[in-house]
């Protein structure tokens, strides 16, 4: 068992206290905005795309901004570490499980935070390819559709909630 501080591993707390690659990239090539403030977690991931020696496109720089719990901040930080310098293809094939492994585990209720971080990465790449008017790989298209659908569902739920709230207040 990895050492724990409160309900998190030491690794999670390290990332939480000193998040890596925190902040905004001005004139980013792609931005992925996921999550919803109603549920509590919002992640914005910025990428700058460059090329490696072999001429493949890589994630040259990556930064994040997150509103959320300890797990949300730590997973944001860890994913930036894991994908910096990776090719776009590698980023697309990114295994979500790696985040949890790298952090030495997360409480079960917080696993969704690691899913959110990967979604942010894919959305950033989607945004980049769309801006460049490039063809979107099928896998990415599907991920984007799923994220959009989830977003709409939350918005719908939230709208109902707002209406209900207004009704209660009257």
């Amino acid at each position: 068992m990895p050492e724990k501080i409160s309900l998190y591993t030491k690794k999670v707390i390290e990332h939480f206290q000193n998040p890596h690659n925190m902040g905004k990239i001005k004139k980013a090539d792609g931005v992925g905005k996921v999550g919803n403030i109603v549920c509590g977690d919002v992640m914005w991931l910025y990428i700058k795309v460059g090329k490696n020696k072999r001429g493949e496109e890589i994630i040259k720089d990556v930064k994040f901004e997150t509103f959320g719990c300890v797990a949300a901040v730590a997973t944001s930080s860890v994913i930036t570490d894991l994908i910096k310098g990776k090719t776009l293809q590698e980023a697309l094939d990114f295994d979500r499980q790696k985040i949890v492994e790298e952090l030495g585990g997360l409480p079960p209720i917080k696993i969704h935070c690691s899913l959110l971080a990967t979604d942010a990465l894919w959305e950033a790449i989607y945004d980049y390819l769309t801006k460049k008017k490039r063809e979107i790989p099928e896998k990415l298209k599907k991920a984007h559709q799923r994220i959009e659908k989830e977003k709409k569902e939350i918005e719908k739920r939230y709208k109902k909630w707002v209406l209900l709230e207004e009704k209660i207040k009257k």
Partner: peptide
């Protein structure tokens, strides 16, 4: 613009025990 669990854990690391009503801290989210 900040989330309660993050505040509570930060305070815990500083040796202060507090509590929050944030969704992130509840089992039901």
């Amino acid at each position: 613009f900040v989330e309660g669990e993050s505040i509570v854990i930060h305070l815990d690391l500083l040796g202060i025990a507090a509590s929050t009503g944030s969704a992130c801290s509840s089992e039901k989210l």
